[in-house]
C-alpha cells in the first residue's frame, strides 16, 4: 500500500503523517507537493493538518485551488480513499468533497489536548477495522474545528451514516462537556456518501505509539492499510 501526503505551503503535520506511515506502519509513502499534478500512484491520499496558506480567508479556502487538488478530486470520485486531518478536513469541506463547514471554536480559543472520540461508522476504509461504539483517545489541535451544517443536512448525514466520529467521554457517552469546540451533534469526523472520503479534526497521526500518549490513531491508519477494496488509480 502506498500513501501520498499532500504538502501545502503552511502544512505542518505532513512530516508527522509521513513518519507515522513509514516508520510505524512500515508502508511506502511519498510527499505530494501542492503544485504538482501527479499523485505518484498513491493508493491512499492524506491531506495533513497545519495552516495552509496561513489560514488566510478561511481554513483550507485557498489550498483547495492548488493544482494537486484537481487530481485529489478525480481520485476521490473514482473511489480512492482520501483522509483529511484537521486543516485537511477544512480543505475537504471547502472543495465540496465533504458537506458542511468548520467554523471558529465556540469558545474562540485554540484547543490543544487529548480527547475521546467514538467510532460511529465502520463503513469507511479508515474505520472498517474499528467497531461501532469503540472509543479512541486522540489529540486535537485547532482553533476552527466547530463543525456546522443546517438541521436538514445534519439529519441527512445522520440518516446516511455519514457521521464517522463523535466527541465523547472516556466511557463513550456523548456530553456537552466532551465537545471541545461547539460542533453540532458533537461531530468530530464525517465521510462522503461513498464513504471513501473521510475528514476529522483529531490527529490520528499524532497517536501512533504509546510513548506519544496513545496508539489509538494507528487503528485508523491500519484500517486503510488493510483495506482490500481500494480502487487503484488508473
Amino acid at each position: 500500500m502506498k500513501f501520498g501526503v499532500v504538502t501545502f505551503p503552511g502544512s505542518n503535520c505532513d512530516y508527522d503523517a509521513y513518519a507515522a506511515v513509514r516508520f510505524v506502519l512500515g508502508q511506502e509513502v511519498e510527499f505530494l507537493w501542492h503544485k504538482s499534478s501527479d499523485l505518484c500512484n498513491a493508493d491512499v491520499i492524506i491531506l495533513p493538518g497545519g495552516f495552509s496558506y496561513g489560514d488566510y480567508l478561511r481554513g483550507g479556502a485557498i489550498a483547495r485551488f492548488s493544482p494537486i487538488m484537481e487530481e485529489v478530486l478525480q481520485f476521490a470520485s473514482s473511489g480512492g480513499p482520501v483522509i483529511g486531518i484537521c486543516n485537511g478536513f477544512q480543505v475537504l469541506t471547502e472543495c465540496g468533497l465533504l458537506p458542511g463547514a468548520l467554523m471558529r471554536n465556540s469558545h474562540l480559543r485554540f484547543s490543544c489536548k487529548y480527547v475521546h472520540i467514538r467510532v460511529e461508522s465502520d463503513q469507511t476504509p479508515f474505520t472498517h477495522g474499528c467497531t461501532v461504539g469503540e472509543v479512541l483517545n486522540i489529540p486535537i489541535a485547532h482553533g476552527e474545528g466547530n463543525y456546522y451544517h443546517f438541521d436538514k443536512e445534519i439529519k441527512e448525514l445522520e440518516d446516511n451514516g455519514q457521521v464517522v466520529f463523535r466527541y465523547c467521554e472516556a466511557d463513550g457517552s456523548i456530553t456537552e462537556k466532551a465537545n471541545p469546540n461547539g460542533s453540532i451533534a458533537g461531530i468530530a469526523g464525517i465521510c462522503n456518501r461513498g464513504g471513501n472520503v473521510v475528514g476529522l479534526m483529531p490527529h490520528p497521526e499524532r497517536a501512533v505509539e504509546s510513548i506519544l500518549g496513545s496508539a489509538d490513531g494507528l487503528k485508523i491508519l491500519n484500517s486503510v492499510n488493510d483495506y482490500k477494496k481500494v480502487t487503484a488509480q488508473a
Binding site: 480567508l57 478561511r58 479556502a61 485557498i62 485551488f65 469541506t93 471547502e94 458537506p99 458542511g100 463547514a101 467554523m103 456546522y148 451544517h149
Partner: peptide, 8 residues
C-alpha cells in the same frame, strides 16, 4: 468561489 463560503 473564494471570498465567501456559500455554505455558511
Amino acid at each position: 468561489r473564494l471570498l465567501a463560503n456559500p455554505v455558511i
